[in-house]
Amino acid sequence: MELNVERIERYSRQIILPEVGGEGQRKLFDARVLLVGAGGLGSPAALYLAAAGVGTLGIIDSDDVDLSNLGRQIIHTTADVGRPKVESAEDRIRALNPDVRIRALSERATAATLPGILAGYDFVIDGTDNFASKYLINDACVLAGVPYSHAGIIRFQGQLLTVLPGRSACLRCLFPSPPPEGAAPTCAQAGILGPVAGVIGTLQALEAARWILGIGDLLAGRLLIYDALRARFREVAIPRDPRCPVCGESPTIRELRDEAPVACPTRAARV
């Protein structure tokens, strides 16, 4: 993609930043980011990355837009209810920024398919809301050496951690395995205040942008926890675990497998 007059105008407010400039903008044009999930986290992440001019966005999600999604999944509109989320997201991104190449996959990411999909991307955003998918993404990214942003949200809280495989802690260094099925309250019971998804999904987009631009400090080895009720952030250092089952010294997970899905009866961002 060339930096023509129109594009210089479109991206002028970030090109003017010395840390970005024309060179940084070209890095964004050349970058390929995969969003797993076009829900509460994926919506703001996709919109901001598209607006910033990230050249290629992959979106994978097997769900259709549900009325109960619209309280936070801001990439979809009322008219989109019943449509596949990836189609709705693609339309909205195209309307926002026609520069962006979109690869939309209306399917569920599995142990069989994810490695092949990942191969075409520089950075991955985990915007899923179930642990089977979160652990699948973690293991796939660690095994393939693709950096990614892990995040989770619930009620009035969110947290995120950026994983640089082999260099910083992964999800399994923090929690070696997913919680057993049925151990957790359901999505519908637990709830989420919409803007919390916006805060955390936007922070994920920033992680991707800083990775692409090579500026600042990533949330690698640092879990950022947001308490939206008290408007407070806190940070906890997460060291790599030498006994981590996937990125430790003697890993027991050497190939990708599907974790047993954790029950989650809502239709929110399940991929």
């Binding site: 979160k134 919680p179 999505c187 879990l223 929110a268």
Partner: peptide, 15 residues
Amino acid sequence: VEFLYYMGGGSAGGD
């Protein structure tokens, strides 16, 4: 002391 929770829609966790 830090207590860290699993977090994801449909998860345990939260405060």
